[in-house]
Design a protein around this nucleic acid. Structure first.
Lengths: 228, 228
DNA sequence: CGAATCCTTGAGAGGGGTCAATTCTAGTGG
DNA sequence: CCACTAGAATTGACCCCTCTCAAGGATTCG
């Protein structure tokens, strides 16, 4: 893991969630107060663990981060994949209630959360950024509960593919950054069922799979029908 | 449904989520600006529907409210039951993304949300109340995703009973305010599986069921073992 | 007492899980 | 450039947990 200091993004009129690429400083230079520190992680590195003291709120600059919870016997639920621009690690209490890991190589900014309450009171860009991040997480979680509780395997995969396509390329083709195991643990399925569902959709001509991680949505209408 | 006006609770030092019983005003008197209006609902009344303009944020004064989402074919997922003191109806956008209904007779306060962004910026008690409510919803949703995605029927019931006991009586006995159907739609099960799980726990001596809605947790240790 | 609703119980079926083997892919070193 | 290897993904066979369908109690309310 590598770290660099980051100065506050200059403009206060940046739209929510589009904080531009931050400017960097040499780590010895403390003339300007740093508001965030940049960290980069390789594949499958731990960013924080469940139970760690929640001292930072994070934003993804590039790559993908997964946040997950574990049962005592190892069963895992990935509550979300966080892409560039997404905020994660917001906590009400003083401990993280889930763990965060890099899915592939990725870069994040960590904002010290001395006192989130005070931060929220002030009218800074970051505070609004965080409030909006929290709301987005909530919306995402609510939709995901419907998926986990009430959708069939095929419907789960269809919803997942449409969502990922919209969040990444916006195109009809997408590169999945995560493994089948990650997808399974996100959708409440097993890796075998995920694989079988992909194959079934491919046989039905709904998607194409040039390779395991590359998906072409050749029949979006059919996918949206499955999205119920 | 009945309505009454409500003046702002006088103290600004009230602890979060314990806004005390509000004072009422006759509805014709507008000398003091009202910050919330009180509404009461009978069993199974709709408070707002999915897609309604989200003009208010609500707090439960008494009774229970369920918020849920529907798939096009009628499958339902209840994302949460809201008890006295809980906040619901917080939205990022301008529409409700789920519907809210009374489970039994219940009373709520509705706070007009002219501009939630501005509200959040100001340092009022209500703003903090709402921020905390949002965070609690998020924590609850994250835990619930783990339940929906990875727990067995028995584990779901065990978790649900422990949670409800803690939120209501705090005791080892509780009165369930909701039907088996509601429980099923909350836990991602069918009504039959919910019923069978209750019976199984009763046969194992983990709980007692003097009546369908009254549960005694006679072996909390066993329940917590199932809680994984 | 009858009607409606809620809950429980049973029998059977099926969707997804489990276990296991095979294929595919990416990375490594010769 | 090509074997070799380890991990990832696919596929098959079988099983079980939960769903479905259906009937039968229990409770409430007129």
């Amino acid at each position: 893991m590598q770290t660099a200091l980051l100065t506050k993004a200059s403009s206060s009129t940046l739209p929510l969630f589009t904080l531009e690429a931050p400017q960097f400083r040499k780590s010895g230079d403390n003339a300007v107060p740093a508001v965030g520190s940049v960290h980069s992680y390789a594949k499958d590195e731990e960013i924080f663990a469940e139970g760690d003291r929640a001292a930072y709120v994070y934003k993804v600059l590039s790559g993908v981060v997964r946040t997950s919870k574990l049962l005592s016997d190892g069963r895992r639920q990935i509550d979300a994949f966080h892409l560039a621009g997404d905020i994660f690690g917001i906590e009400a209490g003083d401990e993280y209630r889930f763990c965060a890991e890099s899915v592939g190589d990725c870069i994040v900014v960590a904002y010290r959360r001395s006192n989130l309450g005070a931060l929220m009171g002030s009218d800074t860009q970051l505070a609004q950024d965080i409030t909006m991040g929290m709301m987005r997480s909530l919306v995402r979680a609510q939709n995901h509960m419907l998926l986990l509780g009430r959708k069939s395997a095929l419907e789960k995969i269809a919803t997942f593919l449409l969502d990922m396509a919209e969040r990444t390329s916006g195109d009809d083709a997408l590169d999945l950054p995560m493994s089948r195991t990650d997808i399974a643990d996100h959708l409440g399925l097993t890796i075998e069922t995920v694989s079988r569902s992909f194959t079934q959709l491919e046989r039905q001509g709904v998607i194409e799979l040039p390779s395991a991680r590359h998906v072409v949505l050749s029949n979006k209408a059919a996918l949206e029908r499955l999205n119920a």
